[in-house]
């Protein structure tokens, strides 16, 4: 078996064992005569078979707000928050990274805002931007921006001065130096921030959805609603869907990274 095959085999095996154990352990009674007493109570963590049934139901046309609509809403806000956060964070990091005085002026504000727990902003952001998509995007942005900003800032500062000098000797203008030296070397740092950024964008969005109600929709809404009805199965459907969304986005970023950073030795071998 090839190395890849072996890894895949073990991954699948772990999945099967976990799901199997979950299904089995939530099915056997601790005290056989007493109904409702389980080794592990499915009331709290549900069971795979039930989750699949609930998923099928939520995915069908019978419900007002299908799981697809909710997932789409979450993905949409996450992507927007991610894109806006990454681009503004990158631009700000590059700008302040190359202008020392500007960086010194802004430093206390950036640190103050960044040390604010973002959850504390949720009510305010909701108050300003309403219960819709926009509030969720803003929340994701407030987190992603800083992660990308700090990394790009470091990257822009640590650009090798001799590379800049060589570019100047080869006739580069200021703008050409930025484009051909500073941006590419900062990018390597920025990319290190992207995978965590996706997770954090998701956090911002889901927290926003907790408060956003039905008009905001999204998987966070499903989670809060399931809490209200004590429905562990629906909650699990939402959590697993979130997990899948996270994986897909992280893999997507890996692909882009591999392409843009293919000059680095660690990416030299193809995927």
């Amino acid at each position: 078996m090839s190395d890849r095959g072996r890894v895949l085999f073990w991954r699948l095996l772990i999945l099967v064992v976990l799901v199997g154990a979950w299904e089995w352990l939530t099915g056997i009674k601790a005290i056989s005569k007493t109904p409702g007493l389980y080794w592990i109570d499915p009331f709290f963590i549900s069971r795979p078979s039930v989750i699949v049934k609930r998923f099928a139901y939520l995915a069908s046309g019978e419900v007002r707000l299908s799981i697809w609509a909710m997932a789409l809403s979450t993905v949409q806000s996450t992507l927007w928050g991610f894109v806006v956060g990454v681009s503004t964070g990158f631009a700000a990091g590059l700008g302040l990274g190359r202008h020392d005085r500007l960086a010194r002026v802004f430093e206390p504000y950036i640190i103050a805002f960044n040390s604010l727990p973002r959850i504390a902003l949720v009510p305010l952001v909701t108050m300003i931007f309403g219960f819709g998509l926009l509030a969720k995007i803003v929340l994701a942005w407030t987190i992603v921006f800083f992660i990308v900003f700090f990394n790009t800032f470091q990257g822009a500062r640590s650009v090798d001065a001799d590379l800049i000098h060589s570019a100047r000797f080869l006739g580069a203008s200021e703008r050409q130096v930025v484009r051909t030296v500073i941006v590419p070397s900062a990018l390597a740092w920025t990319f290190a921030a992207l995978t965590p950024s996706v997770s954090f964008a998701l956090i911002g969005v889901v927290v926003g959805e907790f408060l956003g109600g039905e008009s905001g929709g999204g998987l966070g809404y499903l989670i809060i609603q399931s809490l209200g009805t004590l429905n562990a199965a629906d909650m699990m459907v939402a959590l697993l869907t979130l997990g899948v969304i996270g994986i897909v986005m992280a893999l997507g970023i890996k692909q882009v990274e591999r392409r843009l950073l293919r000059w680095r030795p660690e990416y030299r071998k193809g995927p």
């Binding site: 090798d160 001799d162 590379l163 000098h165 060589s166 100047r168 000797f169 080869l170 006739g171 051909t180 030296v181 590419p184 070397s185 950073l261 000059w263 680095r264």
Partner: peptide
């Protein structure tokens, strides 16, 4: 300033790693 007609070769490796 850095004069245009001057070429400079550094001791340190200053080839841009992200370019072929």
């Amino acid at each position: 300033d850095v004069p245009r007609k001057v070429g400079y070769v550094f001791q340190k490796d200053t080839v841009f790693p992200w370019r072929t």
